[in-house]
Amino acid sequence: MATTLTLDKDTLVAKARQSMQRMLPDNAWTPRQKLALTCRILFDAGHDSGLAGQITCRADKPGTYYTQRLGLGFDEISESNLLLVDEDLNVLEGDGMANPANRFHSWVYRARPDVNCIIHTHPLHIVALSMLEVPLMVSHMDICPLFDDCAFLKQWPGVPVGNEEGEIISAALGDKRAILLAHHGQLVACASIEEACVLASLFERAAKLQLLAMAAGEIKPIPEALAREAHDWISTPKRSQTTFAYYARRALKQHADCLAPAA
């Protein structure tokens, strides 16, 4: 016989979260493996733009992080060809060079000690939206992790290879997890690789939905309180881990080579 039909919503939410923590497993991949998987996941999700875009995550030693090698597309990144670099982009481990645009990641990491992974890409629908100089509009339940969590930089500061661009982008991001960069692309800065991967994937879907809705009519707002409720319901570490695991299983069917270890 049912025992939960008279429980209030807060109680049911708490019970569901407890069950998720107990029943859903943590991911066992290493940070390098998660980065490689993220690159393949995002490539399949439309984040490919030639050699544009970067992904980084903090390494064990302060002031160092893992990133991809310049010259390789996201579909070519594997555990074995990632680089370990310092804040000056000097390569400490691996062969090749980092993308010079990685410089602004150091500024974000310094401003945000809560951030452990940064993804910057130029996916098709985000770039199209950025050309309109309008901020992201969250008006659907699935996109609510970005509600009041996506900044907007309307002025394009140019290619992000100087320290000035790092200062501008990190300041515009503020305390949010995502930012739409006008005439440029997107950036997410999150506590984990899983969270960053999932949010970056969602960001591109959100831009696509916004463009479709704008073409059809006027986008209607959703109630702020409900949007915040949905934001907090979806934006948990366990949900990010579980969603990432699904994306990874899907990617590994096509990209098993991304987990090839260094020789």
Rank of each mutant, 00 (worst) to 15 (best):
V85G: 02
G217Y: 10
F104Q: 00
P25G: 04
V134I: 14
E204I: 06
E167N: 05
R17L: 13
R17C: 05
R17M: 13
L259R: 02
E76A: 15
D75Q: 13
T3H: 11
D44I: 04
W29S: 14
T56P: 00
T121W: 03
S106C: 10
H105L: 00
H183L: 08
I193S: 02
T121D: 03
L252D: 03
L259K: 05
L226Y: 08
T6G: 05
A256I: 08
H183K: 15
N81Y: 09
A251I: 08
A101M: 06
D86H: 04
H255D: 14
E218W: 07
K61Q: 15
E79D: 13
T38R: 02
D60W: 07
V85H: 02
P113E: 12
W107V: 00
M141Y: 14
R69V: 08
A207C: 15
I169W: 02
G50W: 05
L173A: 06
L51E: 02
Y109R: 08
L173C: 07
A263P: 15
A189Y: 03
H120K: 02
L226G: 09
A171V: 04
I234H: 05
G94P: 05
L173P: 02
A191G: 12
S192M: 13
M23N: 09
A225V: 12
S139N: 14
A248K: 08
D175F: 04
S130M: 07
R177H: 13
T243P: 01
L226E: 15
M141S: 09
W156Q: 10
C197F: 09
L5G: 01
T236Y: 05
T11A: 10
D88E: 15
L7Y: 09
Q254S: 14
Y246M: 13
L187A: 08
A245R: 09
N163M: 09
D8L: 07
L153Q: 09
N102V: 00
L84Y: 02
Q210M: 15
I168C: 01
S106N: 03
H105P: 00
T67S: 10
E167W: 02
I77Q: 04
P25C: 06
E204G: 04
R58D: 10
W156E: 08
N90I: 04
Q54G: 00
A216M: 14
A262P: 00
Q210K: 07
A189P: 04
L211E: 08
S130F: 04
L187W: 01
G217E: 11
A16W: 08
G162Q: 10
A189Q: 06
A101C: 13
G158W: 12
N27L: 10
A111I: 07
R110F: 02
R69I: 04
I169G: 01
I41H: 00
R103D: 03
A227W: 02
D142T: 12
E164D: 15
C57T: 15
I234Y: 11
T67C: 15
W233N: 06
